[in-house]
Design a protein around this nucleic acid. Structure first.
Lengths: 342, 342
DNA sequence: ATTAGCAGTCAAAGAAATAGATTGCTAAAA
DNA sequence: TTTTAGCAATCTATTTCTTTGACTGCTAAT
């Protein structure tokens, strides 16, 4: 139910959210009178604020304090009041510079984007490799590294490369490797990299020259590759300067969340395929995250998911700035891609 | 100059360090009287403590507080007074269990050891891949992943595998790859992986079929591989429960150190090749680390450095326990290695 | 519908008082 | 000479009380 606020209430809510984001202090009616767009006295504002609190957009830490946006207030702000925060020329310059580095791997590009995002926004940034299971296999290579050590390299259409090293208890011959390469490529190229469990038998039957054990082990390892998606964190130290982390509990919760990156990965992976997702406080439905907000963007190239980058910070987050920077970086990645930068 | 303390002073210093490590409260003369080994009154202990302070082994936070070990005090303790802390059966069981996982890569083994160490000691653990430059090359493979994308895989005698993906502006043929493989193997196998810059020309001259540019690029990428050693951190959240991190500054310093892992990598890499190194406070000669201690061990297999694992925590660290656990894990890794586990 | 004005509320900051821990010193005892 | 008992002095941590100042909410006038 998208509540309808009259114009003045919208302006007041917006002003409160923005001032609070900037100062981290509860906002008083008095300080809002200064706002040019609001041509009324503090008493009027107080009345409006009381109503906004009534319907759940604002909260009061205590009777004689100013107001603070509630989670619902932030949500309304993000959905309805957010204005594009234009990046300064300096910031754009900085982003350009940082992202200029040449890379050979998509993975490295993600790292760079993560670092850039953290530097510019001053929040902690997390990158998560995509779930590759719906990516299409372009090629599979097997390389014998020792008599009993095999390396499997899988290429997908999205440019993501995964490799795995597999050890066996028996010697492998080059002939076997050639067989494997032939069969796996034959059966899997052009298909999505879904878990290969159902039709395993089929492959095995089709191919008895190289023992069942070997094939089973290879499939097992390939499946493992699909499961673990790497995560990178940058700027975990950024939070320390934020006033909310003066509270021991917040700091503790934050470090715990960072250490168990899966928590965030979970949230990110359950997200919709919108380009930008915003989870405010308990919206992420994880107890540990109820005091934090997460903003993510799915990095799509040619419609393929090639990874998600997320920012985590207090609910009092500069959503406007974060979203603007994300959009810019996202666009830049796409442009670079089209120019064939990688 | 290894100062000589009489027996009673040694006992007192030891008792103070151990009690302080346990409680994190300054130790008073009164609480030491309880110690059975010390058969004297609190007044006597006070006199001894005054002398220990005189010669720099103890410090006083303020006049009416107990004593705290100084950095020099910790150093003496570690060098002279440390007693082997026998691990409980439960801990040994836990280590065994955690390290049972089968791995294919040395890298994964390091990760597991890192996690185990952090779980058992309750400190933050950092693993750093070794500098492979003095490792001997066993094999070099080149795999064509696309017409312009090459993967180079380097195997060393220590079992460490490094791979790199290299992109070119022109198409590569399989024939060229075969050439490259032949030449690189011919020239490099059996040699240490030192930076390949001096005799580059030689290779190039020996081989004109595949353009100079390609070779240059490959060498460049291989050199990059040598430089960047990966680091893993586990248990960064462990510190939050330690009383010293109640102080904002400590927490800030810690997060900064963790974020710029290079700082620690630096310290670790400049260490001697002793099996276990202990850096107490400013001994690490980095301003950022003056309030922290680092204990590292070089993981050697067959005399080859295959990585370093370090623990970082406050100077009030349970050195005895940390060192005992490290020794145990180190031994276990070696045993497993001899049994051919990897 | 708006606003001026004022009483009421509460946290945060400061000041003062208190309690408690521990030392250092002195003089007596061993 | 070494050890110890005892006590004054020191300083932190805790508690309590007071003061200040920032807001709000309400009422009555505009």
């Amino acid at each position: 139910m998208p509540e309808n606020l009259d114009n003045r209430k919208r302006k007041i809510l917006q002003a409160i959210v923005e001032e609070y984001i900037e100062t981290s202090e509860p906002v008083s009616s008095g300080s809002l009178v200064q706002n040019e767009e609001l041509n009324c006295s503090s008493a009027t504002i107080r009345n409006e604020m009381a109503e906004l609190e009534q319907i759940g957009f604002l909260e009061k830490p205590h009777t004689s304090a100013g107001r603070v946006p509630s989670q619902k207030g932030y949500r309304y702000y993000v959905d309805e009041l957010l204005r594009e925060d234009n990046l300064s020329r300096k910031e754009i310059e900085m982003i350009r510079e940082m992202m200029e580095t040449k890379v050979n791997r998509l993975e490295d590009l993600t790292k760079i984007a993560t670092t850039t995002l953290s530097e510019i926004t001053h929040y902690t940034t997390i990158a998560i490799e995509p779930n590759v299971s719906n990516h299409t296999i372009i090629d599979i290579k097997f390389i014998l590294l020792g008599t009993r050590v095999l390396m499997a390299v899988i290429l997908t259409d999205s440019g993501i490369i995964r490799e795995s090293i597999i050890k066996f208890d028996e010697d492998l011959t080059q002939e076997q490797i050639d067989d494997l390469t032939y069969i796996f490529n034959n059966k899997l190229v052009g298909k999505p990299l879904e878990k290969i469990d159902g039709p395993i038998e089929e492959y095995i039957v089709a191919e008895m020259k190289t023992g069942i054990k070997i094939i089973e082990k290879i499939i097992e390892e390939i499946n493992k590759l699909l499961e673990d998606s790497k995560t990178y964190i940058k700027g975990a130290n950024k939070v320390i300067d934020m006033p909310e982390f003066k509270k021991q509990d917040m700091a503790k919760d934050f470090l715990n969340v960072i250490d168990a990156k899966d928590i965030i990965a979970d949230v990110i992976n359950t997200g919709m395929a919108k380009d930008i997702n915003v989870y405010i406080g308990s919206e992420s439905e994880r107890e540990e995250l109820k005091n934090f907000s997460i903003v993510t963007f799915n990095h799509l190239l040619d419609g393929k998911d090639i990874g998600t980058i997320g920012i985590i910070g207090p609910t009092r987050m500069d959503y406007s700035k974060v979203i603007s920077v994300m959009k810019y970086i996202s666009k830049k990645l796409n442009d670079d891609y089209k120019k064939g930068k990688f």
